[in-house]
Amino acid sequence: MKKIIVACGSGVATSQTVASKVNRLLKENKVDAKVEAVDLKSVDRHLTDAVAYIAITKTNKEYPIPVINGIAFLTGMKQKEELQRLIDAVNNG
């Protein structure tokens, strides 16, 4: 199973909410991947084995894996597009 990471500032509200929502969507779409909510400080460590990074904080640097807009999963706006980008990242990762 492939790993996707999501991180927010406190790790107690938005990141876990996004993780649970995206996990549900992946399951519905029969995608073999799991989203893990991680501490913002440990993102770099997870980049080696994750296939995508769902960001819900401002990203100022380049990442070696696709960065997905996590706000889309909270608000529902552009959710379809971001989910497709995520599925593509899983399939290509």
Binding site: C8, G9, S10, T57, I71, L74, T75, G76, M77
Partner: peptide
């Protein structure tokens, strides 16, 4: 926290 990670959501 708000300064570092703003919390506005552009919901419709």
């Amino acid at each position: 926290r708000e300064e570092a990670y703003p919390t506005g959501l552009p919901t419709q």
